[in-house]
Design a protein around this nucleic acid. Sequence first.
DNA 1: CAGTATCCGAGTCGATACTG
DNA 2: CAGTATCGACTCGGATACTG
Lengths: 118, 118
Amino acid sequence: MNSKKVYKSCLDNCPLAYALNIIDGKWRLPIIWALNKNKIMRYNELKRDIDGITNMMLTQTSKELESYGIIDRKQYMEIPPRVEYSLTESGQDLIVALKELANWGKNMQSNDKLSDMG
Amino acid sequence: MNSKKVYKSCLDNCPLAYALNIIDGKWRLPIIWALNKNKIMRYNELKRDIDGITNMMLTQTSKELESYGIIDRKQYMEIPPRVEYSLTESGQDLIVALKELANWGKNMQSNDKLSDMG
DNA sequence: CAGTATCCGAGTCGATACTG
DNA sequence: CAGTATCGACTCGGATACTG
């Protein structure tokens, strides 16, 4: 067991580990989120929208998400090049599940604030 | 922006980032999961249950989860020492949200298998 | 426009040994 | 029993420069 995340050690039998592995990575959610809002985006649109991301990271992360079946990449054979990214159906289903987690997070945050005020 | 996870940069305003930050870490889910199954566990019970965890990591991670309000730590002033860990209510709510994500993961996994078979 | 290539730093985790 | 302390390794991501 040398991998950083334990869930990589049980990818085959644990669906939660599998899911978390897919969304794990600094830029994955930002990309997923941007595509959820704007539906279809070109490479440089994504880059402008996601604050601080480099070409390196955008290319790498979008490839990874594509390989997982989360996002779709359509390349048009034109000059200048045009590539459009969007969420797949699986990607859209993911959003639904994440909103549950976001809800829980929101409750946690407001509890924090209450206890801060003592 | 120097932190590894981008969600650390928006902890204040993004509930999803906040939630993911809490479950991020190699041993957090294993601990949460073990406590969800067994309800109340002592230190060495956890250690035996979670394959490969060291004292270092168990102590550190349980402290972190306690500080987030996910788990409860009860120390009994006895000799030999006894410490019991359990999930808080928030921790139990977290399980519910994670099950949604696990469900999504399960669908993803079975889609993978189908496409493997061609 | 939409990417690649290379090199490097920071943070996380593991191994091992020790303690009230 | 229930922890601490120290140090090193590995991986992820950042910065910068280049390309079809």
